[in-house]
């Protein structure tokens, strides 16, 4: 038991990022409010960023700026660099999704997926 807890503590970044991932996933798929869906999407993305950056983290490490003569431990810069790209992607997806929600609101006067479905009389969104 204590062993499990200890390991959980050691891997808390991973644990919480997975929890966040599930929260985001859940929000995204179960909420009818389109804005909430987008929020869920962002939570999910952020959790992965956290996960990814945590991989590269070295306990006690510094930002990887090489100074002559300093013998510090550095964190792995690659995940951070990758996640920078990931963030850009996430932002653009969010912006695009929001613009679609604006369009949908103009068309239907609501941002509730079920309401839209009812207005359309068709399949689920």
């Amino acid at each position: 038991m204590t062993d499990t807890l200890l390991r959980l503590h050691q891997n808390s970044y991973y644990f919480f990022s997975i929890v966040l991932f599930i929260i985001g996933f859940h929000t995204m798929l179960t909420h009818n409010n389109l804005i909430k869906k987008i929020i869920g999407m962002n939570i999910m993305d952020t959790s992965i960023f956290l996960f990814f950056v945590a991989i590269g983290y070295v306990r006690g490490g510094r930002a990887p700026i090489l100074e002559p003569g300093a013998g510090h431990a550095y964190i792995n810069p690659l995940p951070s660099a990758l996640i920078l790209t990931g963030i850009v992607v996430a932002v653009s997806v969010t912006a695009y999704a929001l613009s679609l929600v604006v369009k949908l609101y103009r068309h239907y006067g609501t941002i509730d997926a079920e309401e839209i479905m009812r207005l359309r009389g068709g399949e689920t969104l």
Binding site: F21, G24, F25, M28, L29, L34, K37, M41, M44, D45, I48, F51, F52, I55, P79, G86, V89, V93, Y96, A97, L100, V101, K103, L104, H107, I116, R120, L125
Partner: peptide, 23 residues
Amino acid sequence: VEAAFKYLVLSAVGSGCLLLAIA
């Protein structure tokens, strides 16, 4: 617009899974 939104949401789920797998 509706179809694109649906596509985008599911596609984002897919991307999320993909990125997690990469991680």
